[in-house]
Design a protein around this nucleic acid. Structure first.
Lengths: 239, 239
DNA sequence: AACTGTGAATTGTTTCACAGCT
DNA sequence: AGCTGTGAAACAATTCACAGTT
């Protein structure tokens, strides 16, 4: 269906050299940049707790094991926030990054799968830090449905669409077993969810517009195993 | 310049393509490749459960939303495992990838921080799938120390070096609060740990040789929030 | 002097296209 | 036919280097 390769496309008038501090969300930042900006935000909050008022790209990068130029480029993607000779105003930058990331408001979350991991996440305090609030729980297990966990009632997954819409949920956390993950993801998307934090060890198939972040503990450990194995060659050290 | 066929110069016989042409870690796969290879392994295991015997790069890629060429390149990094016209033998490839990733043996793990998240991970069955076994627990909380959780005694973090060495632990999972993470990481490294799965929301400072994989739920959610925020406009949600 | 913002250079990764095998 | 392995091209990310600002 691709036919013959088309000739080199004419150079588009990519007017990308002139970008200003635009009004927010006209361009979508590369994944890598967004990930680091979230890191910057947290580090800045820590600096703020330490009563610092400004910080240089150098210092910010050092705290996160990143290069100064990278910090500057990342931030410059969104606008000109720094002051030559001075650095970045911490309070100001925190506010800006919160706006950019969209964490300057509350985000209701749906937690789907109230097993061990789901419960641990319910207790996890870090979620609340940036306005993420688990607002509704879902499970397949009949014994759980109707019960309350952490003061929230567990709904049937059958009711996902109705309940999640009612709570205006746009983000969901999926903690169900792998073989159920795709079907609950489909339901979540049908309910209007546009971002999924997926703890199930499967690749989810979702529409283009839905963003999935996969947290796959098995994969992460295998990454470490690969590294560990390569440091020791094939020498078995367990004994 | 490959127009005319230069005779294939075999620089190395590489009959048994066990990587490690020089001594140990001469060719380390790029991070991105290792991550995907772990995905391939899991998908292949699922295919195997479905009684399939061979698979093409096309099919494997489709199942994971990756391009066929990428699958081939990734696998080709480690050797020539496929058969033209046929594809890859699933059983064979699983064995190979297990060896490559180092999951063809048992990996004892130390779990540091036995709070909500730590306990959830203890119950998490996925760890065992590829030989990862949590073998020792550590916590700072006096009330926990000495108690048993899931049949494993909780040790004081003070004893980390002694106990972890005794169990030949090379990989650690850190689930302590952010402000304690660096100090337990230091102890873990002192105990011989060379891979850390870090759930604490801070950047860890470790020696070059130690690999850290950060699983940072806050960062992941902020990533989703950024995306969700950028999709605003024309939201037909009830309300 | 100290620092940012940014074009240019570098490095890394993904996709393309095709020779060659089964 | 169908498929792999791989050089080359295209694309993306990072680092360098420095003009310009305070």
């Amino acid at each position: 269906m691709t036919g013959t390769g088309p000739p080199p496309p004419p150079p588009e008038p990519s007017a990308s050299d002139d970008f200003g501090p635009d009004d927010g969300a006209s361009k979508v930042a590369p994944r890598a940049v967004v990930g680091r900006v979230a890191l910057y935000l947290r580090q800045l909050e820590q600096f703020q707790r330490q009563k610092l008022e400004t910080v240089s790209s150098q210092k910010l990068g050092e705290a996160l094991n990143l290069g100064a130029a990278q910090v500057r480029k990342d931030l410059a993607f969104f606008g000109q926030f720094g002051r030559p000779g001075i650095g970045y105003d911490i309070g100001e930058l925190i506010e800006l990054l919160r706006k950019i990331l969209g964490v300057n408001r509350e985000w209701p979350l749906a937690l789907i799968g109230v097993g061990n991991l789901g419960r641990a996440l319910l207790h996890y305090k870090g979620f609340q830090d940036h306005g993420f609030r688990i607002r509704c729980l879902f499970d397949k297990n009949e014994a759980l449905i109707g019960q309350k966990v952490e003061n929230l009632p567990v709904h049937s997954i059958e009711d996902l669409e109705r309940v999640a819409r009612g709570e205006s949920v746009r983000l969901a956390v999926i903690c169900v077993p792998g073989d159920e993950a795709q079907s609950v993801a489909d339901r979540a998307v049908a309910a209007g969810v546009i971002g999924i934090l997926n703890f199930a060890p499967v690749a989810l198939n979702v529409p283009e517009k839905v963003e999935v972040v996969a947290v796959d503990l098995g994969i992460h450990l295998e990454h470490l195993a690969y590294h560990a194995r390569n440091l020791r060659g094939g020498i078995p050290c367990a004994g």
